[in-house]
Simulated assay, not measured.
Amino acid sequence: MLSGYHAIPNLIGLYAERIDAGDYAGAGELFAHATITSEGRDVRIAGADAARGMYEAWTRRYPDNGTPHTRHVTTNLVLDVDDEAGTGTCRSYVTVFQSLADFPLQPIFTGRYHDTFERADGAWRFVGRHMITDYVGDLSRHLNHVL
């Protein structure tokens, strides 16, 4: 059985891969047993379908390859895991970079994730993600509407 100290960073990495690939259904599946909230906003998204719907409504995908042309870089992971109890938390930073033909590579967003996890039936999964916005750059080519 994989320790939470290995499984949790893998889940965080899978999220970034799926979002950057434009796989909003796959990203949503990571939150099948979780609730997503956002600092300062009345947002409470619960379950895979709701998470997928949120990403589809908020995040633009481009027709050339079906992705948002982004890279989510998650760093500074601070893990607290109780493998015996099957619970864990992780605080991390996220920086989102975007590049398009008419939009040079640049950071467009920085923030933090406060995630909670549990182990169920031998597998680790998200049970909560609280998103905190720190700095916002040019989101005009990333979001379908303004924050």
Rank of each mutant, 00 (worst) to 15 (best):
Glu56Gln: 08
Thr110His: 08
Val43His: 10
Leu79Arg: 00
Asp42Leu: 04
His69Thr: 05
Asp115Arg: 11
Ala16Ser: 08
Glu84Asp: 13
Gly26Met: 01
Leu79Pro: 02
Thr110Gly: 10
Phe97Ile: 06
Val81Ala: 09
Ile8Ala: 09
Met54Cys: 10
Thr35Gly: 01
Asp42Tyr: 12
Leu139Phe: 09
Thr116Arg: 15
Phe97Trp: 14
Ser38Met: 11
Ser3Leu: 15
Trp58Ser: 02
Ile108Cys: 02
Thr116Lys: 15
Ala27Gly: 06
Phe109His: 14
Leu147Asp: 15
His69Tyr: 05
Ser38Tyr: 02
Arg119Gln: 10
Val146Asp: 08
Gly28His: 08
Arg125Ala: 11
Trp58Leu: 10
Gly88Lys: 09
Ala51Ile: 05
Phe117Ile: 03
Asp121Val: 07
Gly86Gln: 01
Asp121Gln: 03
Arg91Phe: 12
Ser92Phe: 01
Ala48Met: 03
Thr35Gln: 08
Thr95Ile: 09
Leu79Gly: 04
Ala21Trp: 04
Gly137Leu: 14
Ala21Phe: 14
His130Cys: 01
Gly26Cys: 07
Asp20Ala: 01
Arg129Thr: 06
His69Phe: 03
Ala57Thr: 13
Cys90Thr: 06
Leu105Ser: 06
Asp138Thr: 04
Leu14Pro: 02
Phe117Gln: 10
Pro63Glu: 11
Leu143Gln: 04
Glu118Thr: 05
Glu84Val: 15
Thr75Ala: 14
Asp138Gln: 11
